[in-house]
Write a protein that binds this DNA or RNA. Structure first.
Ligand code: FES
Ligand code: FES
Lengths: 146, 146
DNA sequence: TGTAACTGATACTATATTGATATCAATTAA
DNA sequence: TTAATTGATATCAATATAGTATCAGTTACA
């Protein structure tokens, strides 16, 4: 069970890069090469992020993409929502029958509680936090071999 | 983003049924009809659960399936693991490069922390708990219309 | 002892989701 | 003018999820 798909993973990495080069336009090609993300695939993700007001673009030579929002205002939860759809733990079980007390149903309650916990965690984890974490750890943005 | 797939969903419902009829064999057909789960699909799930020692079966007429483990000893986390594979938030980002301090990498840390939280929650939620919750709520095991 | 009600085992098909590529028009810096 | 770029969109491939079909073997019981 994979919680983050490639789309989200790539999007995060693209944003980390844009976030650490704020104020300048970075081309899709540069991001693609640097982060090892398939070029055209990345292009699609970037456009999606423009539509969601996370970044802006400039066309033409020397064009590229730039952060629009503050990195601290972009929680990973939002990226998950954009690229994988809202987290929902499960449709309601027992849909065959009619629950007498739906608002008080403990099963539903239980499931939704977990849903909330998951969302809260991903909400606290912002791009800004990740950037700071990475910088603090390495001085330089740098990754691992796995 | 769907956290529980049909397989897990169906498996939980099958176990809730077996768990509330302990000591007797319940046929796949009965479960299928009662819980509205595709018959052959369910058969596969039941066999998988036998392999994982959660239930036992009796062949032949009047045969069927029965709980083996205590319902309280079956956390939803285990079912997720069996039917969807272990929860993993993400492969390591930045795999292109080599992380100097992998054991101290904060990004990895962050991601694994969330992974743990999710697993803990699904670990606390056992079949036994769900059965009790349902019985307490309704007197009878009963569902909702969604 | 025959047969209907069952599970065991396995192969198959369909559909949806995810991941990736290709193409061409429009824009812009140099 | 042209090379470097994004915008927009169509298409394809790979994988995962959901569901079906079939046949052999076992067992209760009429
Ligand atoms: S980025 Fe992977 S261990 Fe650091
Ligand atoms: S089982 Fe769905 S609301 Fe109760």
């Amino acid at each position: 069970m994979k919680v983050l798909t490639k789309k989200t993973d790539y999007a995060i990495r693209a944003l980390l890069m844009l976030g650490s080069k704020r104020g300048e336009y970075v081309s899709a090609k540069t991001i693609s090469t640097d982060q090892d993300i398939p070029y055209q695939f990345l292009r699609g993700l970037l456009q999606e992020m423009i539509r969601h007001d996370l970044i802006v673009s400039k066309e033409g030579a020397q064009g590229g993409f730039m952060m629009k929002k503050e990195p601290d205002e972009i929680p990973v939860a939002q990226l998950i929502e954009v690229f994988q759809g809202k987290v929902q733990v499960s449709e309601c079980m027992f849909r065959k029958q009619i629950c007498a007390n739906r608002s008080r149903c403990v099963l539903r309650h239980e499931i939704m509680r977990i849903e909330q916990v998951v969302n809260q965690e991903f909400d606290k984890l912002t791009i800004g936090k990740l950037i700071r974490d990475l910088e603090a750890a390495n001085g330089v943005t740098q990754g691992c071999g796995e």
